[in-house]
Amino acid sequence: MSPSGDTSPTGAETHDALSGRQWMLRGARAAISIPAFILTAAFVGYAGLARETGLTLGETLAMTGLVWALPSVVVLTGAISSGMGLIPAGIAVALASVRLMPMTMALMPIIKVPGKTKNWQMLLASHFVAVTAWVYAMKHLPELPREARLPFFVGFGSAVSSFVFCMTGIAYLLVERMPDMVAGALVLLTPVYFLCSLWGAARLNADKAAMIAGLVLGPVFFLYLPGLDLLWTGLLGGTIAYLATRVMRRGLS
């Protein structure tokens, strides 16, 4: 409808008077960023894995777009390639995706305008919740005016996911077999990026304590309670971190 981007009049507008669409465009522009680059690299790495596993291009893209959370995508790839049934595969993926619930919960009060934001808008926006966008949102959304946060997040999320979607397809078609070292380096990108940006997004001591607890407990539960490991890591690590820092903040009240 309107010419997009920078041609809109800017002079008379105050910061708050930007429309939802303009905030969405700003979000999309903000998506040209390090996190998007790193996520793209991770999905390019995944495209190689999908092709080696024998998934078609259509299946790979459908998974990228519909699931939109790399760990869950990897689990589902394994399930399909090993001929797992629908129900066991669904359970495996659901277990790998539980983390999305507390992540979405934590994001809601930041994004929501009480009494104004509709539930369907939140449900749509929630599809973009995945670690990369979540970390970015937790760090940057609180700096924006409240009305701007939802459109900005949707613009950011849809821009990142469409870009990653296209690049995954291109990578699938072009990269027959990646050199080992490149593939390995792509795999390491994601955890290191998560590590640095999660620390950067931590606002309270509680967040930092939770991060350390999760780093330590994650592998322990993975070895002793595989399947449910992330759930226990989150619940136990998060609760310990919360209680410990609460005692530090307010004493034993």
Partner: peptide, 14 residues
């Protein structure tokens, strides 16, 4: 937020 953060941290170390 602590629970979510610890979960993501668990993904990292895995």
């Amino acid at each position: 937020r602590c629970v979510a953060t610890a979960l993501v941290a668990g993904v990292i170390s895995k």
